[in-house]
Amino acid sequence: MAAIEILGLEKTYMVGFWRKRPKRALHPLHLTVEQGEIFGFLGPNGAGKTTTLKLLMGLVFPTSGSARILGRDWTDPDIKAQIGFLPEQPYFYDYLTAHELLDYYGQLSGVPAKQRKQRIEEVLQRVGLTDVKGVQLRKFSKGMLQRAGIAQAILHDPKVVFFDEPMSGLDPMGRREVRDLMEQLKQEGKTVFFSTHILSDAEALCDRVAIIYKGELKGVGAVEDLTSTVQGRVDVVWQGTQVPASMKALGAECHVSGDTVRAVISEAQQDAVIDALRRERLRLISITPVRTSLEEYFVEKLRRAETSAGGAA
């Protein structure tokens, strides 16, 4: 059973004064997320990430399509006891303290009174919000609010967690902690679905990612698959402080850094470069194929989308 199955969810808003002009926020989206995965939902601002999450949370209603979460219809309110959700830039009841807020959410999620107190302390500790007893949320910084948001999303020990831009508002240390937390959740068998436009986070964390652009899905796959495109080039590193003339003759662009030299060459030149290094009696350190980074893949996808949209226009 998949954790999340999105079956053609689509959203079109009617805009304008008379609400007669359709504006498509999300084209029919088909996506499956397996249990225990960390799934990254990537896209630039305004791509449709938040709309998708709002549809899944039942905050907006789809124009068509449906979804299943843990095998059950996504509109079934009871399935929400198994779901945790962190909205983008969360804002909470600022007259409450973090403990009161979590107690309230625990009540709404059906966490028994006996367990609530203990769970609240656990999750606050987990997100690094200690020493906040008695402090109202209106006195929290943006980063602290984000941590409180993550705490409320995992408070009731949900099986599937949806995070909308979880790193937003966090300092580098905080981002690292959230990344660790997401990895811990995965180790606990939870499914994590998170949206982000910070690609390094996605590359470091995700088993699979989907790329969405202007409401349309542009690609889905395992991070390794998406980044394994060898561009027919190899990265050669050897020991040395100077670039030999034979290398220059091959036309390779070389960079000297300390006592190593790095060159990116075409695969066809690989043997010639190795021979040249042997002749010069230089020690080869490594030779690795050049892989596309997730960022390059992402930019390329968006560039193609832009081109095809421009062509169609």
């Binding site: 039942g58 905050l59 006891a81 959700f85 909470f92 948001g149």
Partner: peptide, 14 residues
């Protein structure tokens, strides 16, 4: 407006 509703309605609340 304050989006406090999001974290309430994403729970088993009708």
């Amino acid at each position: 407006e304050r989006r406090t509703l999001y974290t309430v309605l994403s729970r088993p609340v009708r």
